[in-house]
Amino acid sequence: MTAAECLAATAETGAAATDDTDLARCLRAVAEHGDREAFLILYDHFAPRVTAYMQRGGASPAQAEDLAQDTLLAVWRKAALFDPRKAGAATWVFTIARNLRIDRLRRERRPTVDIDEATLVDPAGDAETEIGAARAAARLRRAVDDLPPDQAAVVRMSFFEDLPHPAIAERLGIPLGTVKSRLRLAFKKVRDALDDTGDPA
C-alpha cells in the first residue's frame, strides 16, 4: 500500500478519508514507507477522538491534547504491529489510547498480551481481508447504534468513564448482576455482528 492509494481515496471523495479500510491502508503506508502524508490523514481522523476519549476518562483539556499527541506518536512508531486480520484501524488506535490512559492517567502497569500467538492461518488475500473487514465494521457499527439505551449506557460508562462494574452499579442504582447482564447482552450482539459471514442486510 502506498500513500498515493489512500490519498486517491481522499481525492475521490473530496474529503478526508474516514473509512476504516482507508485508514488501515494509511497505517500500512506508515509502516512500510514512513509515509508522512498518510500519517497526517490518520492524525486528522484520530487525534480529536483520542482527545475526547481522554477527557471523558478524567484528563484536563490540556492533558487530553498531550495524551492525544503521544498516542498518535505511538501510532507512527508501532504501525508495523498493526494487523488488519486481527483488528480494524479504529480498534487498534483505541487500544493504544486505552493503554496510554492506564499508564499515564492511572499510573498503573498492565501485562503484555501475546498477540503473536493469536495469529490464525488466514488464506484470504489482502483484498478479501479488506472486504470482509469493511463488512464486519459496518455490521458492528449498526449493532452498536442499535443497542437498547440501558445496554448502551452501561457499555459507554465502562469504556469512556473508566468505571469498574461495581461503580457503574452504584452510579445507576442497580444491582451489579444487572450491570453484568446488560454487558453480556450487548457483547452478544457485537459477537453476532462480527461472526455473521453473510452480506450486510
Binding site: A87, G88, T91
Partner: peptide
C-alpha cells in the same frame, strides 16, 4: 478481539 472491536466502534463514534 470482539470486546476490543466494541471499544473501537464506540471510540470511532466520539465527536471530533
Amino acid at each position: 478481539r470482539a470486546a476490543e472491536a466494541l471499544g473501537g466502534a464506540l471510540f470511532e463514534a466520539l465527536p471530533a
